[in-house]
Amino acid sequence: MRRLRVGLSRRLKSGLWRGVSVTAAMAMIALLGLIFWTVIKGSLPAWSWSVLTTPTQGLAGGLENAIVGTLWLGLLTMLGVAIAGIATGIYAAVYAPLWARESILFISDVLSGVPSIVFGYVGYLAFVVAFGWGFSALAAALTLTMLSLPYMVRNTYQSFAKVPIHLIDSARALGFSRARTIWSLMWPSSWGGMAAGSILALSVAMGETAPLIYTAEWSQNLPSWDLTHHSVAYLTYVVWTFIQEPYPQANALAYMAGLVLMLVIGAVSFGARVREFGRAR
């Protein structure tokens, strides 16, 4: 007869695994804490509420233009990514013949491995120069869209492919068209995955620097809401350039920009989590 009590070695082993995984989780939290600590400490000299309400002036001033610019670019990008990514993902999951589906997924995997600066350069050559839009919100948002599209395509594809085949079969057997099946049955259960995909794409986009330097340039002013021919400010620019300046107040502003960016991205992901959590119950 098998012993009912778990043997000592089994208990030791499971205790060990537990220990390892708890340690790893703690290490991750500690790392996040360290990052926050560094950023907060660095940004303290620049802290005042007016940082949020004044634009940058030279190497000083506040971050209003950059914050609004980042949100503006993020919004445009999310729009582009959602439309293009969902359409491509649905095509791959539902309509595409096998070879087309595999090609889309392959290309999307390759794209997600391309360095972002390459996207910046391509975006510069295509949108800024060839299309003649100049440094602009549209050029930047389209570049960010290309860059974060793979995440959206993957997520959409996977959440649509997860819909059980017997459900689709019974919809077909009832005479549902494909469009109807997608809209009434697949869309509702894929919604969570698509939302997660666009939020991931949004955070990736907002955290980028290199492609924006090529396409949005930089501006001391609030975004003009013109889609073309007006450069746009964004937080990562401040992080990237101001940190290299020899002036302490510029460095502090760079840290502050990093902190704000982390908080914005954190808030967005947290919002998505809360939704997921609500769904799970």
Partner: peptide, 13 residues
């Protein structure tokens, strides 16, 4: 010409 499958397949609705 309707069809009923082996496993019940209600829509998640």
């Amino acid at each position: 010409i309707g069809m009923v499958f082996q496993r019940p397949t209600p829509f998640p609705k």
